[in-house]
């Protein structure tokens, strides 16, 4: 019994409780927040396994970005809870089969790992060891082609998603930043110099009420 083991049990309990809560709570926003908790606890477990790069990337990408957009959608949509629960009994058999299959696969994988000594406690890495550097070395040498192909697939997904939603309507009004930025003060504002029209200005001829009156404002402008 030592501190990492105690922490493992604590985090494991929180992770399982959070994951169960995701599917049990009624409010979809609460469910999404429990999913956030599950991700975060999983990241803590990975840190216990000295996989700090993966753990922090999990927090950064899934908790910090993906789940934020997820919450966005769930909060904006008006979700009818009754409609969500309608097909529960109908899809239960299929969901059960998938769940059992996944459980069997995971048990098989873990049992094989235990048989080959994979279940032995991890040795703490040395002082100069950097998880990130090691991962980078492997990704950009041994696995460079799978890595690049995965990146291209993601890029294609992004481009196609944008292409599907990109519709430009003619009546849409939008600002052209270039024309906004290239505006000078002289385009919008004209400084007009004119002589004072106060009572003291006796030298300047008084405009007669008729005829010249319309010329007072614009006549002196340069």
């Amino acid at each position: 019994m030592n501190l990492p083991l105690v922490l493992f049990w604590v985090y494991g309990a929180i992770l399982i409780a959070g994951a169960i809560a995701v599917i049990l709570v009624r409010n979809p926003v609460h469910a999404a927040l429990f999913l956030v908790l599950s991700f975060f606890t999983a990241a803590a477990l990975w840190i216990l396994l000295y996989a700090e790069f993966l753990a922090l990337t999990l927090v950064l990408v899934y908790v910090g970005a993906v789940m934020v957009l997820f919450l966005f959608v769930v909060m904006m949509l008006d979700i009818n809870l009754e409609r969500l629960r309608e097909g529960f009994w109908k899809s239960l058999p299929l969901a059960g089969i998938v769940g059992v299959l996944m459980a069997i696969e995971m048990v098989a994988l873990l049992a094989r790992g235990a048989a080959t000594g994979g279940g032995a406690p991890l040795a703490a890495p040395g002082a100069g060891y950097s998880n990130t550097r090691a991962l980078g070395m492997v990704i950009y040498t041994d696995y460079v082609f799978p890595f690049e192909i995965a990146a291209v697939i993601l890029l294609v997904a992004i481009v196609s998603a944008i292409a599907l939603t990109l519709r430009s309507r003619k009546e849409t009004k939008y600002q052209d930043p270039h024309s906004q930025l290239s505006v000078h003060a002289s385009d919008r504002l004209k400084i007009v110099k004119m002589a004072s029209e106060g009572l003291s200005s006796e030298s300047s001829p008084q405009p007669s009420p008729k005829g010249e009156g319309a010329n007072v404002g614009g006549g002196v402008a340069k």
């Binding site: 700090e52 922090l56 927090v59 908790v63 950097s130 998880n131 990130t132």
Partner: peptide, 14 residues
């Protein structure tokens, strides 16, 4: 920590 910058980015994203 060796991954200090990642910790900081993760925390500010939370």
């Amino acid at each position: 920590a060796d991954a200090a910058i990642l910790v900081m980015l993760a925390m500010t994203s939370l």
